[in-house]
Write a protein that binds this DNA or RNA. Structure first.
Length: 193
DNA sequence: CTATAGATAATCT
DNA sequence: GATTATCTATAGG
């Protein structure tokens, strides 16, 4: 038994602001079924954030964002990819954290097979890539994160987390709500100095 | 190494 | 009809 096995995140971990949760998730371990890794990059989206799906209020697509903290919000991106979010907030506030990149550590061969790639750096370095590697689809939308196939363990030691502007958005691009391990080779994009 | 176009479909205006 | 919380392949320096 390793320390990460005994360090499962409590549901209350997500009952805070998305920015705080996004920061604290860096270095945590995400496991989905038989594949997973270390979370090295996240982004926060809040209810009053023009770049957030929840900004316009509750819709069919973003309903999960207004659900309980500690559930998954999975949506289709650019008609092709899936993206995985962790719903946050104390009162079903419509805030969430986008999981943007993992350092793959568990189930490498399974993820290689799903991605059709060998290079570990390309397996999970991006929200769409990560979902393909972990087998995440729209069926996971609204599922609880503290129950199988999900398992999330907190980081053991403190890590160096750096913030930067979010990627791929056209509004509120001045918010530094992207967080990551600055030295990780598994980021979807380098963080600014 | 950086830059850009194309894929592709649900969601939004 | 336009936009999009992306990725890949390809072309160019």
């Amino acid at each position: 038994m390793t320390s990460s096995d005994t360090n499962k995140l409590a549901p209350e971990f997500f009952s805070r602001g998305a920015i705080e949760v996004a920061h604290d998730l860096i270095g945590a371990t995400l496991l989905v079924g038989q594949a997973g890794g270390l979370i090295v990059e996240t982004e926060a989206y809040t209810r009053t954030d023009p770049a957030s799906h929840s900004f316009v209020g509750r819709t069919v697509r973003n309903a999960a964002m207004f659900g309980a903290a500690g559930t998954a919000y999975v949506y289709r991106s650019y008609g092709i990819h899936w993206c995985l979010n962790f719903v946050c907030g104390e009162n079903e506030t419509g805030s969430a954290v986008l999981v943007r990149a993992l350092e793959p550590t568990i189930g490498l061969e399974l993820m290689r097979a799903r991605r059709g790639l060998e290079d570990a750096r390309l397996l999970c370095s991006g929200p769409g890539r990560l979902c393909q590697a972990l087998g995440i689809t729209g069926e996971y939308n609204g599922r609880r994160l503290d129950q199988p196939p999900f398992a999330i363990s907190g980081r053991g030691e403190s890590v160096d987390v750096r913030a930067g502007p979010r990627i791929g958005i056209s509004r509120a691009s001045d918010c530094l709500w992207r967080f990551g391990l600055p030295t990780s080779p598994f980021l979807s994009k380098k963080l600014p100095p």
